[in-house]
Amino acid sequence: MTATEWLLWARGPAFEIATVILVMGIIVRLIEILMLGRKENLAAPKGSATTGGLRTIVSRSVPDSGTFQRSTFTIVAGYIFHIGLFVVIFLLAPHILVFSKLTGLSWPALPTTIVDAFAVITILALIAVLINRLNNKVKRYLSGPMDYIVWALTTLPLITGYMAFHRIGFSGPMLIALHIMSVELLMIAIPFTKLSHAFTLFLARFYNGAVTGIKGVQS
């Protein structure tokens, strides 16, 4: 296959397949979770479930000082690469065009050079967390092969994207094809791995908060 054929495959059939798997997978997961339901709570509510849920979404996103002191690196590096991923995925002009084609919505982009800087920082942060995971005995013990696969699937699109923007190593069509295909791998992996937290995280936090909220306890 020539570079052009790879690119056409990546932008056409492969993107369709990846989108179907991602969308179907996530919807199935969410509905399954929601249909688990909750046992009827017979106790008189002492607080609002909604307020509690919303509060926890925020409060769990802000580390308390004790946790922060114990795992400063994990929290800082984790925040950096999550914010970096958000900026790179959602605020680069060519990416917004993809979301726009998918949803019809559009929003302003950040200057490409800034997104580029975010990409570099994000890649560095991801490398740092990997090194930390390998050097920390407890983290290494807790890590299975899937954790490393998930790390690679997250990092790969950043690296191929950086290469595509700076045009390193391959021909123009091949660079873009590689970048899109690496994203498609990530899209396919999301519903079946821990990466699905992108879609379940806030739901889970809300649930935790709602349970405590209804008991009149802040969490």
């Binding site: 056409l8 932008r11 993107f15 369709e16 989108t19 993809v98 998918l102």
Partner: peptide, 11 residues
């Protein structure tokens, strides 16, 4: 950067 197919319909 955009898909070549009608991705919105697929979605």
């Amino acid at each position: 950067s955009t898909p070549t197919t009608d991705i919105a319909r697929t979605a």
